[in-house]
Simulated scan of single mutants.
Amino acid sequence: MALDNLQPASGSTKNVKRVGRGQGSGMGKTSTRGQKGQKSRSGYKIKRGFEGGQQPIQKRLPKTGFFSRVAKPYSINVDKIKQVAELEEITLDSIKAVYKLSKSVTKVKLIGTAAKDLASKIKDENVTTTGK
Rank of each mutant, 00 (worst) to 15 (best):
residue 2 A to F: 04
residue 3 L to F: 01
residue 3 L to S: 13
residue 5 N to M: 01
residue 6 L to A: 12
residue 6 L to P: 02
residue 6 L to Y: 08
residue 9 A to G: 11
residue 11 G to S: 07
residue 13 T to C: 07
residue 15 N to Y: 03
residue 16 V to K: 14
residue 20 G to R: 07
residue 21 R to N: 10
residue 21 R to C: 07
residue 22 G to S: 13
residue 23 Q to W: 11
residue 24 G to M: 05
residue 25 S to N: 08
residue 25 S to G: 12
residue 25 S to K: 07
residue 25 S to Q: 11
residue 28 G to H: 06
residue 30 T to Q: 10
residue 31 S to I: 09
residue 32 T to E: 10
residue 34 G to Q: 05
residue 34 G to H: 04
residue 42 S to K: 12
residue 42 S to Q: 12
residue 43 G to L: 01
residue 44 Y to P: 02
residue 44 Y to R: 04
residue 47 K to S: 15
residue 48 R to I: 09
residue 50 F to P: 03
residue 52 G to E: 08
residue 54 Q to I: 10
residue 59 K to R: 12
residue 60 R to H: 02
residue 61 L to S: 09
residue 62 P to C: 04
residue 63 K to W: 05
residue 65 G to C: 11
residue 70 V to P: 00
residue 70 V to M: 10
residue 72 K to C: 12
residue 73 P to W: 10
residue 75 S to A: 13
residue 77 N to D: 15
residue 77 N to E: 10
residue 80 K to W: 06
residue 82 K to S: 09
residue 84 V to M: 08
residue 84 V to G: 13
residue 87 L to V: 14
residue 88 E to K: 11
residue 89 E to Q: 14
residue 90 I to H: 02
residue 92 L to W: 05
residue 93 D to F: 00
residue 93 D to I: 02
residue 94 S to K: 01
residue 95 I to H: 02
residue 96 K to V: 03
residue 97 A to Y: 00
residue 97 A to T: 12
residue 103 K to D: 15
residue 104 S to I: 10
residue 106 T to F: 07
residue 107 K to S: 12
residue 109 K to T: 07
residue 110 L to S: 06
residue 110 L to D: 03
residue 112 G to H: 04
residue 113 T to V: 10
residue 115 A to I: 14
residue 115 A to C: 04
residue 115 A to S: 15
residue 117 D to K: 14
residue 120 S to C: 00
residue 120 S to W: 01
residue 124 D to F: 06
residue 131 G to I: 13
